[in-house]
């Protein structure tokens, strides 16, 4: 089974949970910017959590299905149309053979910018080093190592049994990650916190920063009050993670995201929690963010609470599927 891309949108790429295990060889992990929305979508369809989906940035996507399948749009709640009829996000819809799925472009900071179009069975592109994720800068993985283009024919794997029975299943509003509104992003002190002045650290944790238009899958550059170093911003390169907050010599923070390089040579004042980094991924240029200094335990509690939500959603789906 496959679908044919009619309109690719600004940036539509195939992603699973990322190419782990090869950072020691200089290979970027990639993976979704908002892993939680991707995993929820897959669970709603009865897919494997790690199945590949399409990550859409501010929509603009349309495709024609060559076989019947179920789909769900998670993440940013952009308008979804199936055969021209509006279909809500976070709800499982059936697409008939020859059916058309469209997510028109919409720049709306109130809903976020990254949506996940999940298909029962999961998107079928070759596994490269254990992952289907696209790393566009390295031209690795996904569909030919690049973003989708008009006319591309994208395969879909065989769905799990009873996949049709998920049709109509809705993710309760309370379990959708949302955009976090004005909630501060959780952040822990970074490995080079000692390279900053007390005033610099205070500034970072208390002031508001604005997402700039120089923000992409590699990193989010933020604009705001300058964070001062004690002596300098350069260090001998060491490892970085999703959410590392680098502060180069200009004193402006950069939060590293999914397509981050594996190592870097700037001081890291903090690391945004895994959960909050995915919320940051939904912010648009012009949005303000604040950081709250938390412990590693508080950050892990966010993940624990998501895991229990995900389990609950899986149980609800199982019950929905076996309804009379």
């Amino acid at each position: 089974m496959s679908f044919i891309v009619e309109k690719p949108g600004m940036l539509t790429i195939v992603q699973d949970l990322g190419r782990w295990g090869h950072q020691s060889r200089g290979l970027t992990v990639s993976g979704p910017m908002d892993q939680f929305s991707l995993r929820l979508g897959n669970v709603m369809l009865g897919n494997d959590e790690n199945d590949a989906v399409l990550e859409l940035t501010i929509g603009g996507f349309a495709a024609v299905f060559q076989e019947e399948r179920c789909v769900v749009l998670t993440g940013a709640e952009l308008p979804l149309y199936i055969d021209g009829h509006p279909a809500p996000a976070w709800t499982v819809h059936r697409v008939t053979s020859g059916g058309r799925v469209a997510v028109p472009a919409k720049f709306d900071p109130s809903v976020g910018c990254r949506s996940y179009l999940c298909v029962s069975g999961g998107v079928d592109v070759p596994l490269v080093m254990g992952s289907r994720s696209t790393f566009t800068r390295g031209r690795i993985g996904g569909y030919k190592g690049r973003a989708l283009a008009s006319g591309d024919v994208i395969g879909v794997l065989a769905p799990s049994p009873l996949w049709r029975r998920s049709e109509g299943f809705v993710c309760p509003a309370g379990l959708r990650p949302g955009r976090f509104g004005d909630e501060p992003l959780y952040a822990m002190d970074g490995p080079q916190i000692d390279a900053f002045t007390e005033a610099g650290v205070r500034t970072f944790y208390s002031e508001a920063y604005t997402v700039t238009d120089k923000s992409d899958r590699m990193g989010f550059r933020l604009e705001g009050p300058i964070i001062s170093h004690k002596a300098g911003a350069d260090i001998v390169s060491d490892g970085i993670v999703h959410g590392s907050v680098q502060v180069p010599g200009d004193g402006k923070p950069i939060v590293l995201m999914s397509d981050r390089q594996t190592t870097g040579g700037y001081t890291k004042i903090a690391v945004v929690s895994t959960w909050s980094a995915a919320r940051l991924a939904q912010k648009m240029p012009g949005d303000a963010v604040r950081f709250r200094r938390v412990s590693e335990k508080e950050a892990t509690d966010q993940l624990r609470s998501f895991e229990s939500d995900l389990r609950r959603l899986g149980e609800m789906r199982a019950a929905y599927r076996s309804r009379a």
Binding site: M188, G239, V271, A299
Partner: peptide, 16 residues
């Protein structure tokens, strides 16, 4: 050194 909620850094030296 902690590096977020999912990474621990073991630093041996500040230099090469």
């Amino acid at each position: 050194l902690g590096s977020g909620d999912s990474c621990l850094v073991v630093e041996f030296s500040p230099a090469i």
